[in-house]
Design a protein around this nucleic acid. Structure first.
Lengths: 347, 347
DNA sequence: CTGAAAGCGCTTACAG
DNA sequence: CTGAAAGCGCTTACAG
């Protein structure tokens, strides 16, 4: 194996100093056209690629973005495993990161100590947080002086960090309004946990607004939560269990609003396995519009959000913040849209 | 913002040289118990975290593993987007990487030039390739002197690199045998492209072996391919289209073997939308056993592979190779298992 | 057992 | 417009 080509080799070859090579590489200072050409040619002939590690060390900038997942069982396994949601998001992030010459590092964070050491060790330029984290972590974040963009989080943190969200309240409203318009009155709402997930809380507000407008009183027996703490993932399995609870309910439920397509699919499966039909017996609305929605029977009515674009926007925001460090906290709110398919029908 | 704590600060605080701090950090050479204690304490009190960038530069080792996806449209978007397969795999990789103090960098590779510069720039310690790449890339790989583990690839490359696979031939055999045992004779086989994907080719061999054993002649009209080149992703959509082709077939097909659950689900959807029933009119077998298989109706009979474990094994193999560079090319073949659910029935 | 010094491959005031 | 030199934060022969 040959020795690595360094800036010094290029300098020697082009008969200039390493500093000059660095100048042309960085487009800094005025280097004469003639010299620049010689250097560029040397770079080409020697097949030279600058070493990012060295650049990071001397520039104090790594061109590395960390994507942080909340953890379960010491791996982001559970969170990502079933839900194509995260695939899409990461895809969006990656595409803009690469365009801007950043690489992405993915990790799950199990505890604060792990987080702290990880960020410090790697000299990350910026961080993207996906989803919900324990409050302690947000405090820890403040101590670390790099740009952070939060995705799918609300409330107190919003005022401190940048973030990108969708109009969750409207999403909950549209889903519910759709069912109300179809004549449904006993509409269940299925969330993870609205105390813990402010995203779900907003959607729940939208649900209540739609009921309110239709003069339908809120009935707490129609409200279902799947999780008790931060450690829950959205899985088909927990959707399925909620489906069974709905079957046991005495509230004469005819329609169901959920905060995730995964839940909706799990619920529908439970209903169908117990001999109920969708949408004849129950109308069901999902949330997200993952591609699968089109390929189950019945196809799933859902609130669409552009997850890929969410990833893109978050990455752009972060990279902007990295490049112009003065930028202030701000929020982007992306639109949502109701997609009507075959899992809902008039009562 | 306070200045970063360096090894020098620690050294000063503990009243030793930076070299000594480095020794205790690396557990190298014998440092006296007493000195070591002082250093450790200084590290704790100053809240010191070694800078990986600096370590990388001086050790010539980044503790970074690259996960490389094959690309479409300049992002790994399409490949990953619909298929939870990759989630699981990455989860498995991440969990062992983190345990061993490696971080993972994710990228898609659009062209060779991009690949080359990416690997060189980042001083990656090792590479994991997911899926299929153009032959040119394999040649390029050889030139770069770092450990590589290929996942889901076969043939000439196998002899050069390490890789982890499953017993694909057996998978194809088990799926087909199951249908044969149920009395089916006209069994379709759906692949991406067996010229391009040796994985699919092996499964196809298994399919033919099962037919052979049952004295059923191979009928080329029962063989369906979805892709024409390297650029295809496995999507519900292409499964759906194959489903429509199957409906149009005059071969009196009663059963279908596929190389992916995603295809199977797309196919079933097409069949159902056109008024056919599964398994009454068609028995369908998937491949992979993604979690969704349990939550569609009918639940999907499939060939299970442990994707998570595949990721773990690949990461272990790679890290071993990084730590003991002498290790030779080798292969791991993971088992497969038929999971019978409701999408298949006796003819 | 411990430390001074050179080096990893780049960047960047500073001087000319 | 160009270069010598110091520095980024570590590691590692080498010497003692």
């Amino acid at each position: 194996m040959s020795k690595k080509t360094t800036i010094r080799d290029v300098a020697k070859y082009a008969d200039v100093s390493p500093a000059t090579v660095s100048y042309v590489l960085n487009g800094v200072k005025k280097v004469s056209e003639e010299t620049k050409l010689r250097v560029l040619q040397a770079i080409g002939e020697l097949n030279y690629y600058p070493d990012f590690t060295a650049i990071s060390l001397s520039k104090r900038k790594s061109n590395l973005i960390g994507i942080v997942f909340s953890l379960i069982d010491n791996s982001f396994a559970e969170v990502m495993r079933e839900n194509p949601y995260y695939n899409e998001m990461i895809s969006g992030i990656e595409i803009v990161a690469r365009k801007k010459n950043f690489d992405i590092l993915i990790t799950g964070i199990g505890n604060i100590e792990e987080y702290r050491s990880w960020v410090k060790k790697r000299n990350l330029d910026g961080l993207l947080f996906l989803g919900l984290f324990p409050p302690k972590l947000y405090n820890e974040m403040k101590k670390i002086d790099i740009p952070i963009v939060l995705i799918d989080t609300y409330e107190e943190y919003t005022n401190v960090y940048k973030n990108v969200n969708i109009n969750d309240e409207l999403g909950g409203y549209l889903a519910t309004k759709h069912l109300v318009d179809l004549g449904h009155r006993n509409i269940a709402f299925v969330a993870t946990n609205i105390k813990v997930s402010l995203v779900d809380e907003r959607r729940f507000q939208g649900y209540k607004r739609a009921l309110n407008e239709a003069k339908i009183p809120f009935n707490n027996n129609l409200f279902f939560e799947t999780l008790l703490n931060f450690e829950g993932a959205i899985t088909f399995e927990s959707g399925y269990k909620i489906g069974e609870q709905i079957l046991e309910s005495r509230e004469n439920i005819t329609a169901i609003v959920t905060i995730s397509d995964i839940y909706a699919i799990g619920i529908i499966n439970a209903l169908q396995k117990h001999g109920k039909r969708v949408p004849e017996d129950y109308s069901v609305v999902g949330f997200d519009d993952i591609s699968m929605c089109n390929y189950i029977l019945p196809s799933l009515t859902t609130v669409k959000q552009d997850i890929f674009n969410k990833g893109e926007e978050a990455a752009k925001m972060l990279i902007d913040a990295i490049e112009i460090p003065s930028s202030k906290p701000k929020s982007i709110e992306l639109p949502v849209k109701l997609i009507v398919r075959d899992s809902t029908k008039p009562l």
